[in-house]
């Protein structure tokens, strides 16, 4: 009994429950056809949402007001930069990845400088920097559609028995990130800062270093997403990151991370990312029109958050 209760009390369980219900509804509607294919597709697409979602989760965990809105443009910049540098050649793969990571690091440093040195609220700082980043991507990429190197394209779309290889890699990565959050000094510091920044400073935590690391981590993860996504979808485009603005925040919240900060978990991000993809698939299967689809998506997300976020006050 206590085991059951322990599991029910985990905030991330609800995203998996939602994911399962939505999948079940889809499969029942189609009479069982495509039951496994839809999971494969969900794994493939959720992978990208998970990577940016984890970065966003660390940022949101550092407390109210902290959010990274520059994720979409960082994805675009990184994708465009890497594709152009690699020029479709496998030999340049490492250089392209390096450039992509460097661009993410630079964005993170820039975001943090705006927040720290100019004391701009994170929501404004990352929003305004996203315009600068996107302009850089436009100036650099200039409408070229370059194919990704073959090895990258193969890697990002490879499957073994219907399981995408990339999804397995990112599941392992998520395990690592979960350990980073719960078992390292960095993770604990993030959780402490999110609860009470002042108390964290007075408990000996180097608050500003941790915030710097967090914004940089988020930007680097967005850059990795851009790199992989460009490989997966056959090239980079300037609007390739667009849908990840809201998706990155939604998966964090649906996954059971507290928007008030200080409390988060990694498994929920996987559940939520799968849920979001399967939800749209389900509505498409039902033949819902675009308008109905958006309305239902909104309602269902609110419902899940209400159930999942049903946090009792601590006292």
């Amino acid at each position: 009994m206590t085991h059951v209760r322990q599991i029910v009390e985990k905030p991330w369980i609800w995203s998996f429950v939602g994911m399962f219900l939505v999948w079940l509804a889809t499969v029942l509607y189609t009479g069982g056809t495509g039951a496994t294919q839809v999971i494969t597709a969900a794994l493939s697409f959720a992978t990208f949402t998970v990577i940016v979602g984890i970065g966003q989760m660390f940022v949101i965990t550092t407390g109210p007001g902290n959010v990274d809105l520059s994720i979409p443009s960082t994805i675009a910049l990184s994708g465009v930069l890497a594709m152009k540098i690699m020029g479709g050649s496998d030999a340049m793969l490492a250089v392209g990845l390096g450039a992509s990571l460097a661009s993410g690091f630079a964005v993170g440093v820039f975001n943090y400088m705006l927040i720290r040195l100019l004391r701009i609220p994170p929501i404004i700082a990352t929003l305004s920097s996203s315009f600068l980043i996107l302009s850089t991507a436009i100036a650099y990429g200039r409408g070229l559609k370059i194919k990704p190197p073959r090895m990258l394209a193969d890697f990002t779309s490879a499957q073994v028995a219907g399981v995408p290889i990339l999804a397995v890699v990112i599941i392992l990565f998520a395990v690592g990130m979960s350990i980073l959050l719960n078992r390292t000094l960095y993770g604990r510091s993030v959780l402490a800062i999110g609860q009470n920044m002042r108390a964290a400073r007075l408990a000996g935590i180097r608050v500003e270093r941790i915030r710097f690391a967090t914004y940089t981590l988020s930007a680097v993860l967005a850059a990795i997403t851009g790199f992989l996504l460009a490989g997966f979808s056959g090239g980079a485009s300037l609007n390739m990151g667009q849908e990840y603005l809201l998706a990155s925040i939604a998966v964090v919240v649906i996954g059971g991370t507290s928007v008030a900060g200080g409390k988060s978990n990694v498994p929920g991000i996987w559940g939520a990312a799968m849920f979001m993809f399967l939800l749209v698939t389900m509505l498409n299967t039902f033949g819902a029109s675009a308008g109905i689809r958006l309305i239902l998506t909104g309602i269902i997300i609110v419902t899940v958050i209400t159930i999942a976020g049903g946090d009792k006050p601590a006292r």
């Binding site: 390292t184 000094l185 604990r188 959780l191 402490a192 609860q195 009470n196 002042r198 108390a199 964290a200 007075l202 408990a203 000996g204 935590i205 200080g262 409390k263 601590a314």
Partner: peptide
């Protein structure tokens, strides 16, 4: 409340937070 407590954490975690580097 403002300067000390981490309200989401257990008593043990609240005590340990200043000594974490030692426990690594």
């Amino acid at each position: 409340q403002t300067d000390g407590i981490f309200h989401l954490w257990s008593i043990a975690q609240n005590i340990g937070v200043r000594s974490l580097p030692r426990m690594v």
